[in-house]
Amino acid sequence: MNNTHSQYFLLYASCIPVKGISRSSIYDIQRNCLRLIPNLIYDVIKDAENRTAGELKKKYNNEYDKEIDIFFEELIEDELGFFTDTPKLFPKLSLAWESSSQISNAIIEIKEKSELNYNSIFSQLDDLGCTSIELRFTGSPTIDFIEHILTACNRSRIVSISMILPYADQFQIDNISYLSSKNLRVNKIIIHSAKENKKISNNYMVAKIYYTTNQLRNSSCGQICKENLIINSDLFRESQKYNSCLNKKVTITENGDIKNCPSFKKKFSNIKVKKLKEAITDAKFQELWHIRKDDINICKSCEFRYSCMDCRAYTQDPKNRYSKPLKCSYDPKTMSW
């Protein structure tokens, strides 16, 4: 490592360090993983950005030369960083995030014999650029009705559909697999209130199918746990400026109310009397889109803040709009879940 004395140590542009109160992390947004590091190493990495390795060691009074070498060796071995003579040739990645869609994702509550015109709802979502939808079926939907709804999405730009269905005897795996094989945009089917827990996923099906004995209600939403961390470039960049759950999201409830999410009381008119396009341009509707993890109490000092979803419906203190999500058990101070 001695020949690195006059060189600069840099992390690869796609490996981005994020400091937390008790430890830090390096988000590798190209390989979609996250590496935890002590805050001290975060400080060393930051210090190294504008100093050669020699200057860096001198800053620490040459007391920790060996340790600094080990840090860098480890980071290089894990393909997180490298030495260079020309740091200016390696600019940082732009973290700007843009989307051409006015709405990118939607939750639609669906019931059979509804008076809502689902064809019109899908067509309006299509006009807004929506590409992902979650269909929450209530009541006792039949396979034919579900197929009818999926057919209505056929000519849209929707690329991914998740479905949540209450268990019924007709939802045996054969029927559900058949439904999924005919509708390749469906990537997740959750059947709740089932008799047993099971997960079906194989190479022949796009969709993953889950049966859960839990009864899923709107109030089941907002769960944040370490198994659900998501590390990728889009979410990392979007979270820098926007709310990771509610940004560009719209909900249409089973009676047509237009909301940010099904768990909120506040509605912005009804689809029967107002076009989605008008409802979502209301400044109030978009207010929550701008609450970032960096604004939220406790979360702003968490090393996972750009990899977890947010929840504004269930928070520790409902009177405080910057309160931590209620259903996250992680404490960044003690680093325990």
Binding site: I133, S160, N187, L216, C221, I224, E227, I230, D234, M309
Partner: peptide, 16 residues
């Protein structure tokens, strides 16, 4: 979520 052209879940109503 990535494999189906989606970079995040739409909701967190169900944990895998």
């Amino acid at each position: 979520h990535h494999d189906a052209g989606q970079y995040k879940p739409i909701s967190t109503i169900h944990n895998e």
